[in-house]
Nucleic acid binder design. Structure first.
Length: 571
DNA sequence: GCCGTTTTCGGCCCGACTGTTTTCAGTCG
């Protein structure tokens, strides 16, 4: 039983309670519990086995602890079984339709017998919904549109794709008449790995003119809402964009409010309340008097806090850390001195080592590791021992012409099913930098995968584990292993953990970075570039590292050239 | 259903937009 499945049970219960019109605070407690469980890096099963007290987790009391035990044992819990009998099983699915909430869904069921998406579509197409009090033709049309959205929407957008959308929108808004300033807030600003929609804050002295400019944006497919404060549109690609007009005295408060996360905001509001203040998107107020609001820094300061970087605003202890002056000094792109995972034409890369070297220099790097595949990855033309020896020689010839730059001769060696490496140890020992990765048998049991990774870490010939979870966003689930044991082994053996910056990987993910850091591990931020342009994806890896609370000192490739040489000198 | 530096009871974040109303409920973020 995985944590996500436990979270799903709690979310389902919350949906049903919501439909039944139960106490909203009880509903919220289930949502909070689902989030807590879903965000956990430790497996609940392990915690239970170690007889840890689950009520130490935020939002988990005696009742939820009991339910978690129940779910782990049986896959469900008493509460859900009882509730299931009271409503059709498919009814909660209707909540996914935009603008349909618990009240409307319940009425559609009570009055029209609608119990699923198909029923809903039929009723809307037959014009039966408009006959209900408080619903009209518009509601009906919106429901039909909503059903289309639910059926076609592939979920959230990857950060990189969202970034491309933002760049395009920026070209339309930058310098346009009526638009004094704009900024994207929301999960995009927090740099979550996927983004639901874009929240854009727009400062203007002339809302009509700004609205006119916004609505002239060609990729807009549908204007979903348009009011004095906000315009909501859907772009042709399916992404929703909410643009809000903000007055300068409130810009900082709006940034905070719309950047979230919701959990971070709630905590800040409670803090404000405790000081006799009220915090909303217009500012921090004492009675009717605005105490702060123009900048984020000012609002945080008025709450006796330093500015908290957006990437940390997830209610994962950042407010407490800020309170005690213990916020991390987060890694920045400029801290990185090189990229330590790059493929060349020797296997499936598009550029020669020489071209890669020049591209790295252009980006201000001091070193770059060429890490082509080993023979197990036959589709990529992976190298055997002899081919690797020749390739390393070629790389070192290129490097020999450089004084202030190090082109490391490396490899990305496969960790095979049983934990052995795909190349002889003496062939690896000659190299400057060895990344070891799993590319097969992702579905192994936790025990098998743990042993597999431990064998690689303890081989004595590797420097780094590449994309440790092996997950592909929206495509492949992460592998399972005992993180405590693997991280501990990495720390002891001086083996780094990679933060792979590829937009589909972003692996290690943020919460795992934090945990690896706490375990004493060193991370590496690399791109896994297969062509020169990929080197610029490093920014996404930096975002993950920042969300994982990492500082420059936690990341190996922030080290200066000489320090890195010293550290990697294989004895 | 959780939680506690006033509280073990009584709170639990707050405002805008839509659609259908004529003063508001529901939904969303």
């Amino acid at each position: 039983m995985e944590n996500a499945q436990v979270a799903a049970v709690f979310d389902r219960i919350a949906d049903i309670l919501d439909l039944l019109g139960e106490n909203p605070f009880r509903v919220r407690s289930y949502r909070t519990a689902a989030r807590t469980v879903g965000d956990l890096t430790e497996r609940l099963e392990d915690l239970v086995e170690e007889e840890k007290d689950l009520t130490d987790l935020p939002g988990i009391g005696a009742g939820f602890a009991e339910k978690i035990h129940d779910i782990l044992r049986t896959g469900t819990c008493e509460t859900l079984r009882d509730l299931r009998d009271r409503l059709p099983a498919g009814l909660p699915d209707l909540l996914a339709v935009p603008n349909l909430g618990p009240k409307k869904v319940k009425r559609l069921y009570d009055e029209l017998g609608i119990a699923g998406l198909d029923d809903l579509q039929a009723a809307a197409e037959d014009g039966r919904i408009r006959n209900l009090e408080g619903m009209g033709e518009k509601t009906e049309a919106n429901i039909l549109q909503g059903i289309r959205t639910v059926r076609t929407e592939a979920g959230r957008t990857r950060l990189k794709d969202a970034a491309d959308q933002v760049e395009a929108l920026g070209r339309h808004l930058d310098g346009a008449a009526g638009i004094d300033r704009w900024q994207v807030a929301g999960s995009f600003r927090r740099r979550r790995e996927t983004v639901g929609d874009l929240d854009v804050l727009v400062q203007t002295g002339d809302r009509d003119r700004a609205a006119e400019r916004i609505l002239a944006y060609k990729p807009i497919d549908d204007v979903m809402a348009q009011g004095k404060e906000k315009i909501s549109v859907r772009l042709a690609g399916g992404m929703q964009v909410d643009l809000r007009f903000i007055e300068p005295p409130a810009f900082g408060a709006a940034q905070m409010y719309f950047t979230g996360s919701k959990a971070h905001n709630i905590r800040l509001r409670k803090r404000a309340q405790g000081q006799g203040l009220k915090l909303n998107e217009y500012g921090l107020f004492k009675g009717k008097t605005r105490k702060a609001g123009e900048t984020e820094e000012e609002v945080y300061a008025a709450l006796d806090l330093p500015l908290i970087p957006p990437e940390l605003r997830e209610d994962r202890g950042e407010i407490d850390a800020a309170d005690h002056g213990r916020l991390p000094d987060l890694l920045t792109r400029d801290d990185l001195r090189g990229d330590l995972h790059v493929h060349s034409t020797a296997t499936d890369g598009a550029n020669s080592p020489e071209e890669l070297l020049h591209a790295a220099r252009q980006r201000g790097y001091d070193y770059l590791a060429v890490t082509d595949h080993s023979k197990a990855v036959s589709v990529a033309g992976g190298l055997d021992e002899e081919a690797l020896r020749r390739h390393a020689e070629a790389v070192r010839e290129v490097d020999a012409g450089e004084k202030r730059f190090w082109l490391l001769a490396g490899v990305e060696v496969d960790i095979m099913k049983d934990g052995r490496l795909d190349l002889a140890h003496d062939a690896l020992a000659d190299l400057d930098w060895v990344v070891a990765s799993v590319h097969s048998y992702f579905a192994q049991s936790e025990d098998e995968m743990t042993d597999r990774l431990l064998a690689a870490v303890e081989s004595g010939v590797i420097d780094c584990i590449g994309h440790p979870l092996g997950r592909m966003l929206g495509q492949r689930d992460p592998v399972r292993f005992d993180a405590d044991r693997v991280f501990e082994a990495c720390k002891d053996a001086g083996v780094c953990l990679e933060i792979n910056a590829h937009p589909e990987r972003l692996d290690l993910p943020d919460v795992w970075c934090k945990r690896a850091k706490e375990a004493g591990c060193t991370m590496v931020v690399s791109t896994d570039a297969h062509k020169i342009a990929d080197l610029d994806l490093i920014a996404h890896g930096v975002s993950v590292a920042r969300r994982g609370w990492l500082e420059a000192g936690d990341v190996l490739n922030t080290q200066a050239l000489t320090a890195l040489r010293k550290r990697l000198k294989h004895s």
